[in-house]
Write a protein that binds this DNA or RNA. Structure first.
Lengths: 220, 220, 220, 220
DNA sequence: TATGAATGAGGGTTCATTCAT
DNA sequence: GATGAATGAACCCTCATTCAT
């Protein structure tokens, strides 16, 4: 087996990529930020039920009880992390689309590559978002799904446009969209910043795959 | 939003698809089988750390202590489940490939559709395999990765063949393979047997996407 | 101040009178019995919210977790204690009434003295019953109130009889009953077995007071 | 069961009668007064160990830390409440006695009815006084018992007078006194201002019972 | 094979209290 | 006077596991 091969199996969820900030909410250097950072790490490593608040507090250099100064419950801590990540992702995708040309293919590539880039640079959060949402109670989960559906909408609209305009030949646009998002989201499961590909290279390549999935054609 | 849309976000990991048996090991109707079945359900619903042995035992209609008659630890129970699923998957993929024509594209379609079909019919187990392997200790995890790498190998060999024979145009065969597997594995996260697509239809469609990803071409 | 005076204030709820068994349920010498005994003591000393399960377990010589082998929750432990006490009390009062003569005054004296005797001999449990019921959730509380209302009924029926027969002159039979029960129940708050009065002497005296409250008269 | 019956069991310690002021110490409208009021409510509802300072502060509309501006500890807050209630009670009983005729029976009725009236109008505080004193450390408890013994003294002196003058026939004056106080104190456990009796009516009736207990006789 | 009892460790959460601002 | 932040201890409860029966 070649040593540089990215094994789908062997790359699942190691730990360690630090929380690098993003959208505000917690001033950098604050205890709240430390808690969020530690929580992202530990939730990524051990999952929602496997990560204890005691460990999170310890890693954040904070007393256990003080976590409750910032987050009323463990579930709310998870929710806060995921809401921020989803909001950031939506913004980046939308910005990327806005900055692209007017063709459906250009906008689609922009969306997909922004999505993949985010899954790579914020991989732990995106990984958590995929794997731990289900442990939120319905009420909290709904808060998140709004964002996630919004993102899915962005893709589906572009693809629908592309199909209408004859640019994409896929006979099942939404199915294809789902396949695209599934494929791209999977990146968060195995991407390592120290791997053979940079986030940008990865994004470019997956955007290429995405185009293939919607069967972008030379039709003009 | 159309009612029949498959929301990537809203379909993550509900519970309930019953364990229907598969490879032997536990005679049907036995307590061991009941335990495995209950464990699959609960691991799917609550994850490894969220599912307690008490709940598993209760749902299986077995006393807690009796679980230890069949499995020496919780981790071994998880391992047993995943090993069986991976072995079954490997067998089905290999059988399917063997039953296909000799062309790389035919074998590739056979492999991908068998893979997807398995992810759909045994979705809970495959979902667990994706999300909970990481909680196994390295030793036990290694037992599993052998199977999973074997499957990845099957795909990579076919694609390499196809590229050599000029049937597939992808410039990065292994990357494409990874994308294919990621995309197909994702099916286990959102497939519902009561959804709009049968497992077979889904398999056919995703095999089609898979071909697109390796850029199967009309070159001959 | 005379040394032998019973101060209403100074005798509130010291601790220590051991649980001496009563109605079955837990075999004597069993861990369950030890838990119940320790719980009675500690609930008497510190109240429901003040008594920790750790202390109870420790005093019972049992591990904390093992308490849950016998009682599914702290509230259920309290409930079990109170149900048993109330049931025992009802039985003793009814037995005592049955064993008395047929006159309302005789039956009333029998009931009151049995009641007081129980409040004295099982003072801790009766004290808890008075002071901690309110911390039970409505559902569990209702289970208890059935018994307690049954006891109140016994008294009210006898008094009503006595009034009808001209034996009791009280113009407000139920009010008087309430006063009687309040007065008798209060015994559990200050009675000490090492005090100047035996339980029997106390019972006799309070039965006398009770008669005064319903204004038992020389009418015949 | 008649709907208007006062069930001894069902009337234990509901919550809610507001603190209406009384002796000074905290200017009306002040934060201190709000804290005391909220504390009375919550101590009545949940008991000393069940009522948290956070809840008290919240209900008082005050920050948690600010509670410590007025009371050095939770125990001191309880002490302050009970001292004030006991002092008020003593004053009212003494005033009532002073305003009565010179006969032992008149003074006794005055004392008892004042006592009951106080137990009814300030029922929550009196209820707390009965049920939560025991959680005070000995030192603080002693501060209270002074007041409570003083009240008991008032009754015992009157009864002793009455016995000496042949007005009361009870052979055990102090025992009877204890029974009277127990019975009257019990009012705080079940009296509801929206019940069938006004505080005044109740006081009159219980004073009547009290007379019966000391066997006030037509002897002259 | 099957089970109830037993346990140490740890789960999330709340406690009364302190202190710098 | 007033507050948000911070903490160690304790809360009730559940965990995976063991063992005698």
């Amino acid at each position: 087996m070649r040593a540089d091969r990215i094994s789908l199996a062997r790359n699942v969820a190691a730990s360690g990529d630090a929380y690098a900030g993003g959208s505000p909410g917690a001033p950098p250097g604050s205890k709240e930020e430390a808690i969020v950072g530690a929580a992202i790490e530990l939730l990524g490593e051990r999952g929602f039920h496997g990560a204890g608040l005691r460990q999170i507090a310890t890693r954040a250099g904070v007393s256990l009880a003080n976590v409750y100064t910032y987050f009323p419950s463990k579930a709310d801590l998870l929710l806060a992390i995921l809401k921020r990540a989803c909001a950031d992702l939506l913004v980046q995708v939308q910005d990327s689309v806005r900055g692209a040309g007017s063709g459906a293919d250009e906008r689609f590539v922009a969306a997909a590559s922004a999505y993949v880039r985010f899954c790579a640079t914020r991989s732990t959060e995106m990984f958590i978002a995929d794997s731990e949402v289900r442990y939120l109670d319905p009420e909290r989960r709904e808060e998140l799904l709004v964002h996630r559906d919004a993102i899915q909408d962005v893709f589906e609209r572009i693809v629908a446009d592309g199909v209408r305009g004859g640019r994409f030949a896929t006979p099942y646009p939404d199915q294809a969209c789902l396949a695209v998002l599934t494929m791209c989201s999977g990146v968060a499961q195995w991407y390592r910043p120290d791997g053979p590909l940079t986030a940008d290279a990865l994004a470019e390549r997956f955007a290429h795959y995405a185009l293939a999935l919607v069967e972008e054609g030379p039709a003009r």
